[in-house]
């Protein structure tokens, strides 16, 4: 476990392999909710929270349940169930205890259950930080940190996109490209510019 490893995870999860622009995880919500900045920010906060927590939870499941009992083939089914339950639980807690926060991002929580970004990061963690059924030293911190960074990458792409789309409201766009098609073309150009980070390797 070293600082440079964390730096590598940060750069690669936020810039080089950005969850949305390079791995295409969470694309549905990215296109659907990025029309304005405010909901985009709330959604990003919610995703960041859930990716971090689910990275931590699934690490425990994988390390202490699936590996010792040789059940790694149940990874998909156990991860999705745990994530869905966790998200549901958080939604209930937030709704009961903090209405202001619920209005800010709680309504996006149910959407996140089937957000590929959350499940994708959990699966990636178990692929990257466990080799031949053994946890790498420090894998817990790496997994948690990768969860945070994936959330940051999501937020970065989401905020850039919503900023651009807000300005597009005032532009004269061909009828057939409105909404989805143009959003994808913009995302394509963003992804192209993120390619520049590729040289950024350690």
């Amino acid at each position: 476990m070293s600082a440079s490893q964390f730096l590598t995870i940060f750069i690669s999860a936020v810039f080089i392999y950005n969850v949305i622009l390079s791995r295409f995880l969470g694309l549905c919500s990215f296109v659907a909710i990025s029309k304005e900045t405010k909901p985009a920010l709330s959604m990003s906060l919610a995703v960041m929270f859930v990716t971090t927590m689910s990275s931590i939870i699934t690490w425990f499941i994988y390390r202490f349940l699936l590996i010792p009992f040789d059940l790694t083939y149940l990874r998909t089914i156990s991860f999705i169930l745990v994530i869905a339950t966790f998200v549901q639980f958080v939604e209930m807690v937030v709704r009961k205890t903090n209405p202001a926060m619920y209005r800010l991002f709680g309504i996006y929580l149910p959407l996140i259950t089937v957000n590929c970004a959350v499940m994708g990061v959990a699966v990636l963690n178990s692929d990257m930080f466990f080799i031949n059924g053994r946890a790498l030293p420090g894998s817990f911190w790496y997994s948690a940190f990768q969860g945070v960074c994936a959330g940051l990458g999501y937020a970065l792409a989401m905020l850039l996109m919503s900023g651009i789309r807000e300005r597009l409201d005032l532009c004269n766009i061909p009828e057939s490209l409105k909404d989805f098609p143009l959003a994808f073309i913009i995302a394509s150009i963003m992804s192209l510019s993120f390619l520049g980070f590729n040289g950024f390797k350690f």
Binding site: S22, P181, A183, F184, I185, A187, S188, S191
Partner: peptide, 14 residues
Amino acid sequence: MPSGALLVIGLLLG
């Protein structure tokens, strides 16, 4: 590359 995928789907949808 990833950006090509986004471009193709955008243009196809259009």
